[in-house]
């Protein structure tokens, strides 16, 4: 679907939501899902990894559906969907139950990395592991600003922090990434 066509659908969708403030119809929700499921899936995967990905995507769309009535129509719908997705991903990481699992995963990650660069087959593996080494905040900024190429102001809006905070997190995250990648022979 072309961007123009997609934006028309969103325009109609938003206007109708504004007029009715009722839950979206099945058709509207289907359109919303078709347009944004790849974005939601990608962001959540890049922040949390594969674990619970399908569940988190579903929960995100349920949050989106529930939030339709309170959606501020002056905001870009994609920014709002980014925000809901990022919050869902970070909630998952930060939840008390998950903390231990992530600690275990981190320990496994460390042992895999300690085994040496030969264990990392592709650059994609390397980037995946490099992102996992970052803190959630730094990883989220890298995902939004560098992988999804959102403007810093939009990243700040999505995360609910100042643009200065985004710049600072981005600076330290890049430094960490360079250091990590350098250990594996990638000099950037």
């Amino acid at each position: 679907m072309s961007k123009l066509k997609a934006s028309n659908i969103l325009f109609d969708f938003n206007r109708e939501r504004e007029l009715t403030a009722a839950p979206p119809s099945a058709e509207e929700f289907g359109q919303l899902y078709s347009l944004h499921q790849a974005l939601v899936r990608s962001v959540i995967y890049q922040i949390t990894g594969l674990e619970a990905l399908d569940d988190l995507v579903q929960e995100t769309f349920i949050r989106i559906w529930k939030g339709m009535a309170s959606f501020r129509h002056e905001a870009k719908i994609t920014s709002w969907i980014y925000r809901v997705s990022v919050n869902q991903a970070l909630d998952h990481i930060r939840s008390a139950n998950r903390r231990q699992e992530f600690a275990d995963a981190d320990a496994q990650e460390k042992s895999a990395l300690d085994a040496g660069p030969e264990k990392l087959v592709t650059n994609r593996d390397l980037v995946t592991k490099a992102l996992l080494k970052l803190s959630e905040d730094h990883r989220t900024v890298i995902v939004l600003a560098l992988l999804h190429e959102l403007p810093l102001a939009e990243v700040a809006d999505v995360l609910g922090v100042s643009e200065g905070t985004v710049k600072s997190r981005l600076h330290y995250a890049k430094a960490d990434l360079r250091k990590f990648l350098g250990e594996y022979g990638v000099k950037i």
Binding site: Q37, L53, D54, L126, T128, L146, V186
Partner: peptide, 17 residues
Amino acid sequence: FLQENQPQAPAAPRDEL
């Protein structure tokens, strides 16, 4: 470098919607 090698999410289950 990050964009070219970014983690790619697996496809959604067919019955997700």
